[in-house]
Design a protein around this nucleic acid. Structure first.
Lengths: 237, 237
DNA sequence: AATATTCACGAAGAAATTTCGGTTTGAATC
DNA sequence: GATTCAAACCGAAATTTCTTCGTGAATATT
């Protein structure tokens, strides 16, 4: 196992120039949310009511079983009015996760400032699990229906989903440069290991409410994942 | 980190009595497939045609977008006839994966005979990925639509899905007894790590056809996962 | 206050699922 | 091989849900 220039490694230093980090997070958390801009105040309220109602109904019944009529009722409007806002049920379902995702990335960007790469990676995984716990309805929709959907293509949403991996890939690359993740392993595989591990915990919690304490379980898994990658790197030297 | 009786560990021995292994696999691969038993030969053929047609249509359009009429046409029958076999579209969608799952478990049971626990675990992960590659339509339906579905509850299918984890848990317990997985880690967490890692690879392949060679990627990931667990165990000694 | 624009809704239309009654087909029995 | 009966099948109608459209009400603008 070759280890050419581990000499330049700086395991626990805060990246100086943040080469690309801020611009990446910037780009990701400012993806266009919605093209349409509502004119009247009433309308903005309605828009919000639709989003809230839809989230509840979708999370409860699943996208496929949810009825437009139910969502409209929940939002306190008529079914036909909903079509002034979204051109179809699917359109609504796929738009819903976006605002939350942006919020997550923004929160993460702030929380990750002035941290080492390792801390950032840990925080990313932990915050993912914790955000799912705090926004269980959203998480149910996102992790169980949207993420795996083959049909979310060429949209802002697919970009946002890919962003999740992009951040992780960035951190993996940094970690390799710093020398605490083995460079002889495929970076996508490493990212898949991290994403897979944490998502599995989240999904199991969403489906069965087990383990009870998602935050604790997520933290444990995150720490374990990173520890394991560090071991690999040490072994590869 | 305590390591009480690692003395009795037998890292690479074939389990003698197979305490529970065979009966577990036996049970899992013989879950009741269908309650209804068709009387006529013609009917059995039709049943098969429905399953084949449905798989193709579901994999292409997704459950929600698929139309009964299309499936019926694909199967060469009228839409109303389909209701003699399944009481709804959902019912059909959720019944589809069962036969394949049983087939997978049977194949695995045979392939895993006379192997060490470590080999069995590796084989399980590798075969999962490979089965998905060989049965891509089925895998698309299973991993992207059925598995994450909250609504598969209290059915044979939910049992079968849980079986996937049960096998893994069994192997993890064996490995702990043999001493090559750390006993101070939560077994469910360890299973989640394994499942999550391999599933992430499969899902990414299903969504993006990347990495190109799923068998190779699955094998690499499986080997890495197990190697990493072994490292953990060594470190815990 | 008059006017224009945005927003909301009920009713009608469209599309898909599901049920029903009657006909055809297959297999067992004589 | 004819008879009989249940199983399998289908077309048409009913039902459910999604979506469009025309019109009127609410809001903002002048």
């Amino acid at each position: 196992m070759p280890a050419k220039d581990v000499i330049t490694a700086q395991p626990s230093a805060v990246p100086e120039s943040d080469n690309g980090w801020d611009s990446l997070l910037q780009e990701i958390s400012h993806r266009p949310k919605r093209a349409t801009e509502r004119k009247q105040d009433r309308s903005k309220r309605t828009e919000q009511q639709i989003l809230t109602g839809a989230l509840r109904v979708f999370a409860r019944d699943g996208i496929s079983r949810s009825r437009i009529a139910d969502i409209a009722a929940e939002a306190g409007i008529s079914a036909s009015t909903l079509y002034e806002y979204y051109k179809s049920k699917e359109d609504l379902a796929y738009d819903l996760p976006l605002s939350h995702l942006a919020e997550f990335f923004e929160g993460y960007h702030v929380a990750a400032a002035n941290k080492t790469t390792r801390e950032r990676m840990l925080l990313y995984l932990v915050m993912s699990a914790d955000y799912a716990r705090e926004h269980a309805e959203w998480a149910r929709l996102f992790y169980l229906e949207i993420w795996p959907s083959v049909f979310v293509t060429d949209t802002d949403l697919r970009h946002s989903i890919n962003d999740f991996t992009r951040v992780l890939l960035f951190l993996v690359n940094e970690a390799i440069a710093e020398g605490w993740i083995a460079r002889d392993r495929n970076i996508h595989e490493t990212a898949a290991l991290l994403t897979g591990g944490i998502n599995q915990i989240i999904i199991t919690w969403l489906l069965y409410r087990k383990p009870r304490n998602l935050t604790k379980a997520g933290t444990e898994m995150a720490e374990r994942l990173i520890a394991v990658l560090e071991m690999e790197a040490r072994a590869a030297r």
